[in-house]
């Protein structure tokens, strides 16, 4: 068993290249299909107090608008399922898999 103490001279911030969210998503390959496999009914979102999808979606695809609604883009989606699980408003999210052969293609995962 080893115990590391408090850091001494460690300036541990920013020791790897900064990466913007778009650059992060650009590391992922998507074969986008013209059909949106996830559809968000923005009118349902207007009454949503939690907007859990906004913080939980790993691909950051749910963007809140100033009038309390949500703008959603399906293209760079991991097809993980997080959004439909954390959303509490019935009917706000219609979730399907993309058509066969399309969507995310992982390579080193």
């Amino acid at each position: 068993m080893t115990a590391h103490g408090t850091p001494r001279n460690h300036d541990h911030a920013h020791r790897w290249p900064e990466i913007s969210f778009q650059d992060r998503m650009d590391t992922v390959r998507f074969d986008v299909h013209e059909r949106a496999h996830i559809v968000v009914d923005g009118s349902k979102c207007e009454g949503c107090s939690t907007q859990h999808c906004v913080v939980a979606c790993p691909a950051n695809l749910f963007v809140p608008t100033s009038d309390g609604g949500i703008v959603f883009n399906y293209e760079q989606c991991f097809e993980c399922g997080t959004c439909y699980l954390v959303c509490n408003v019935e009917g706000a999210i219609t979730w399907t898999y993309p058509d066969g052969g399309h969507g995310v293609v992982f390579r080193r995962t």
């Binding site: 650009d26 590391t27 992922v28 390959r29 390579r107 080193r108």
Partner: peptide, 8 residues
């Protein structure tokens, strides 16, 4: 390889 492959 039909894709440029991105950073990989």
């Amino acid at each position: 390889s039909p894709f440029d492959g991105g950073p990989l």
